[in-house]
Simulated scan of single mutants.
Amino acid sequence: MDKKLSHQIVLLIIIFCNTAFAQNDSTNVSDSIKKEKNIKFNPFPYFSHNKVLGYYYGGGGMLTYRLQKEDTISPRSTTGAFYVRTTNDTWFSVLFTQMYFNEDKWRVIAATGTGLYNFQTYTELPDSEPDFYDYGSRSVMLSAKVYRKVYKKNYLGLGYYYSRTKTRFEEAATDSISNNNSLQMLFLRDTRDNVYYPKKGSKLNAMFTLYPEWMGNVNNFGIFNAYYNRYYGIRNDKDVLAVRAYAKVATSTLDFQRQVVINGIDLRGYTDGKYRGDGKVDVQAEYRWNFLPRIGLVGFGGLGTLYGSEFSEFNGSLYPSGGFGVRYLAIKSTQMRIGLDVARGKDDYAIYFRIGEAF
């Protein structure tokens, strides 16, 4: 699957699943927990905009529930679906589930989806100057991950990811078809006080993905992804300082569908697909200023670099990101916030309608 599309899907899954529950580390059962409905339905809208895809619109719904009614340590599990379309005829739909059980000793995450992604890439064709060229990718994906707590807040896990992508460039006469089957080795350390709006603690997530030839892949190689989020309560925990570091490293040169693009939650403000390569590293920070009980502002900034681009001048260059946003506390019980971000990148910009924080 094209990485931009898969990042959008993963980002939406994380955002929408996280709005449904808050982490509860206490073994005491409060009256509110005793009386809560075991199954709740939560509809959600989605709206956003960037200069390439145009306006996004769509939404979906999800069920939140406890797999074991008396298990008040595990977060509520979630199962749902969503559909998003843009004004340039990009669309995608996803079914997803996140299940927590046995006092949060086990976590299972699964998703399947399909979509059509009309985007652009920056490249140089024979006898022409570098320029943007349109392409369309039709994709189908399936993902499943299982985590087991091994010590305190540390988890080990295994995952499987399958995707089939058919890509056609505006200058090409034939389609490029990519079939990927991969195995994932997973590590998670999660000490956040709240999985939706943490004010202290951290999350370390590391994944090594193998594409072995015996699973039908053309080449045998691996990709390492990792991120670390840290949260600090400020002004007696009214505000939050959040910092994030992200890295992607591949063991060999990647094909077009598996390359990384500078965009998304890691360096907001990039939407045109210009900076693409085999890996990237970036850091960012965000201050969440809650100056009124239900209204707040955020300011963020970051810096990253890229390697493995076809343009040597892109490799090792610095890519800044910065912007601000407004937040509204929509649901007090989960601390779920909605808002709008305006971000600026290198020769690019973006506007994001957000349900939940970026990280």
Rank of each mutant, 00 (worst) to 15 (best):
Y161T: 13
S143Y: 14
W214A: 06
A111M: 11
I14M: 11
R327G: 03
Y246G: 03
E313A: 10
F101H: 06
A247M: 12
F311I: 00
Y55C: 00
Y122L: 04
D282W: 06
S48P: 04
D131C: 08
F353L: 15
S182N: 07
K105W: 10
F314G: 03
V260L: 08
M1T: 14
Y117K: 00
E103R: 13
D2P: 02
D347A: 12
T305F: 01
V243M: 10
E129G: 03
S32I: 13
R344Y: 14
M62I: 09
D25H: 11
N42S: 12
K346V: 07
D31C: 07
N219F: 09
A285Y: 06
A250G: 03
C17V: 14
F256K: 04
Y227S: 11
R189W: 02
G325I: 07
K145V: 01
D272E: 08
S30T: 15
V146C: 10
K34I: 13
R164M: 10
K145I: 01
Y147R: 04
R85W: 08
R66I: 07
Q120N: 10
I15G: 12
A245R: 03
S6I: 14
R244M: 03
R244N: 10
K203D: 10
R258E: 15
S309V: 07
D131P: 01
Y196H: 11
V52R: 05
R168Q: 15
R268E: 01
V10M: 13
L292K: 13
F21L: 05
Y231D: 04
K35H: 10
S321P: 07
G157I: 03
P43G: 00
T87A: 05
Q68N: 13
D71E: 10
F132Q: 00
W106G: 05
S312M: 09
G233C: 00
T271R: 09
K238I: 11
A358I: 10
V281M: 13
G325N: 06
R268V: 02
Y270H: 00
L254G: 04
K200H: 08
N118E: 07
R168I: 11
K280F: 14
G302D: 04
I338W: 07
D348A: 02
S137L: 05
Y133S: 05
N181A: 03
D31I: 13
D190I: 06
F291R: 04
S93L: 11
F47M: 11
Y147L: 13
I109E: 12
G296K: 02
N194Q: 06
K35I: 07
Y161G: 12
L156E: 05
